[in-house]
Amino acid sequence: MNALLEIRNLKVTFPTARGPVDVVKGLSLTLGRERLGIVGESGSGKSMTGRSILRLIRSPGRVTADEMTFNGTDLLSLSEKQMRSIRGARISMVMQDPKFSLNPVMTIGDQIAEALLTHQNLARSDIRSRTFAMLEAVRINDPERVLGLYPHEVSGGMGQRVMIAMMLIPEPDLLIADEPTSALDVSVQAQVLEIIDDLVKRKGMGLILISHDLDLVSAYCDRILVMRSGEVVEECDAGELRNARHPYTQGLLASIPRLDESRDELPVLERTGAST
């Protein structure tokens, strides 16, 4: 299998008053056309990892790596202009909250079309038909009406489907989804993830799903990396997550209440500086 993405020794550093702090400390991963889940708590560096792949970490943050290649292209040596031709077209990213990621003063149709126009030269009628088809693919039943709406006129679930449509319309090779459903209801969550899952499988894309929800990641990924304070503490097959060996992973798993909960108290992780 040809690696789609190869990362060796990725470090993301931010300067602070007390000297530079590594928020990602030497992460390595190889991704094929598969679904990789990255889980961890807030501050574990999982989002920073996703962002650094697209080189979206702004100064004063610094990204270094021994290797970061995408399809054989060295991402770190590209100019900002070359990077723009990769972002969206080859690697795209679905963010957490559609409320903040969609342009509030542009119709949904125009936004999706823009994603396409930025990377390809197409006739107006082609753009319209592809936008249409894409909205249908994310299971929006009446694309005709939705195309003319503004983001505030649609629900959170629909907004997130619009985001996904926008991210997938240039047919990227790799999709990075950073907490794509944490702003959504449980019932809508499943729908959105199934849409992503279906499209990823059908188009043979690679997927990096970043989430704090272990259940969700184990249901929709093939392989899982568990991160804690910038480091990968455990790597396992999604199906094997229940048998995780690392105490941190076990602790996370145990702290989630179950539907048939009978424990009187939930176990909590030991952390420095916490008081109970």
Binding site: D185, L269, T276
Partner: peptide, 29 residues
């Protein structure tokens, strides 16, 4: 986060027991 959620849930449970509180909670979880 899930681990912090566990701490807060434990806290709410303990407070209710200790102070005899009534809870009306809205959630989708």
């Amino acid at each position: 986060d899930v681990s912090v959620q566990a701490e807060i849930l434990n806290l709410l449970k303990r407070l209710r027991r200790e102070q005899g509180l009534t809870y009306l909670m809205v959630t989708h979880n």
